[in-house]
Simulated scan of single mutants.
Amino acid sequence: MRPDEAFRAEVAKNIDGLVADTDLQALSRTWVREVAPHNWAYNFSWLGRPAIQFPNDAWALQELVWKVKPDLIIETGIAHGGSLIYSASLMALLDMCEATEKGEMLDPQNPKRKVLGIDIDIRQHNREAIEAHPLFPRIEMIEGSSISRETVDAVHGFASGYERILVCLDSNHTHDHVLAELQAYAPLVSPESYCVVFDTLLEDMPEHLSDDRPWGPGNSPKTAVHAYLKDNPNFEIDGRIDKKLLITVAPDGFLKRVA
Rank of each mutant, 00 (worst) to 15 (best):
R49Y: 09
I147Y: 00
L209E: 13
A36Q: 07
H133A: 14
A227P: 02
D211K: 15
E150H: 06
S160I: 13
A12L: 14
S28P: 03
E104P: 02
D23Y: 09
D204I: 05
S45H: 13
P134R: 10
K69C: 15
A20W: 02
L116T: 07
Y86T: 07
F254G: 01
A132I: 09
A6H: 09
A259N: 12
H125I: 09
D121W: 10
L72W: 06
P55Q: 07
K244Q: 13
L135F: 05
R33M: 08
D57G: 07
C168I: 11
L188I: 02
N126C: 08
A180H: 08
R8N: 11
A132H: 11
E181Y: 01
H125N: 08
A6T: 08
R2I: 03
V152C: 14
P233I: 07
W46F: 15
A129L: 07
R257K: 14
M1N: 06
A159S: 10
I241C: 04
I52K: 07
V178M: 04
T223E: 12
P221L: 12
M205P: 04
Q62H: 02
S171K: 01
A58I: 02
T248P: 02
A92L: 10
P221Y: 07
K13R: 13
I142N: 00
L94W: 05
S87E: 05
D121L: 15
D199L: 00
F136Y: 13
V196N: 01
A186D: 02
A159H: 08
L18V: 00
N219W: 05
A88H: 02
H177Y: 11
Y185E: 04
A26H: 11
K13Y: 09
T248M: 06
P206M: 11
A51V: 11
I247A: 12
L135Q: 05
A132T: 12
S171C: 03
S171G: 10
E131M: 12
S146E: 01
V155G: 08
M96G: 04
C97Q: 13
T223S: 15
E128W: 01
Q124P: 00
Q25T: 10
T30W: 06
A186Q: 04
L182M: 10
D242R: 01
F7K: 14
I78N: 00
N14I: 12
V196R: 00
A227S: 15
P50I: 08
E163I: 07
G81V: 11
A79T: 01
H177V: 05
I52C: 05
L255Q: 03
A12I: 10
